[in-house]
Simulated scan of single mutants.
Amino acid sequence: MNLSPVQDVVDWGSVPDWFGAVGSIASVLFVYLGLRREIRARRTDELRIRATQARLVSAVAEIRGNSVLRVTVANESDAPVLDVLVLPRLVPPDEPDGPPVELGAVKQVRRIHGRDNHDLFVTVTGERRLHATDTVLVELTFTDHDGNRWRRIGAGQPEPAG
């Protein structure tokens, strides 16, 4: 028994009101997704522009004997790179997708001028012996002319080093 003069009926509105509400929500979502995509595209473009010099810095390792590596760091850009850290790593021959093994201590070069190469010799630590068929990746960490810090492994693309 209901003694209240107000009935327990809820007015859910009309169908056009529902379509209007759904349309409003959909348009806000559409604008949000478009804005998010634009922000990502701009960040990617900024990173690509910032990495222009970093893509011109590379390293190659050459096996010398069974316990020495010659690492050549090349700066093909016009500007110098600073605080270059070089870490050679061996790709395990029995597990190519496995984690590389560090071969020696990190070597540091304070500055490599533009259009210049710098050779480093790394003595392999421990009881590891190198073979001519071994694959060695070099991890480079350096600061470009604009003060951005980068990390590059082998021939991969440079990534910001945080």
Rank of each mutant, 00 (worst) to 15 (best):
N117C: 09
H113R: 14
Q108R: 15
D134Y: 12
L130S: 05
L120I: 08
E76D: 12
V6S: 13
R36M: 06
E95N: 14
D8R: 01
E102G: 13
D17Q: 15
G13H: 01
E76H: 02
G13W: 01
L137S: 08
A59V: 03
D8E: 09
D119W: 06
T141F: 00
F121E: 08
P100L: 11
R42C: 03
V10G: 10
L33E: 14
G147L: 03
T52D: 06
R43T: 04
R50V: 07
A51G: 09
G147C: 05
R48H: 00
P5Y: 04
F30W: 08
R40V: 12
D134T: 14
L47H: 03
L85N: 11
P99C: 06
S67V: 08
P88W: 04
E46T: 02
R43Q: 08
P99H: 07
T72N: 09
N66W: 03
V73M: 06
V6H: 06
V106W: 01
P5F: 05
S24K: 14
W12R: 11
A26G: 07
E46G: 00
V101N: 13
I39F: 00
S14M: 01
R110D: 14
N66M: 04
Q7C: 04
R64F: 04
N2T: 14
P93N: 10
I25F: 01
L47F: 10
P99Q: 13
S14I: 05
V71R: 02
T72A: 10
K107D: 13
I39V: 08
G65H: 07
G147N: 03
S24L: 12
L3Y: 05
N66P: 03
D97S: 12
Q53V: 02
T135K: 08
T44R: 06
V86Y: 00
R55D: 09
R37C: 04
V68F: 12
G13Q: 02
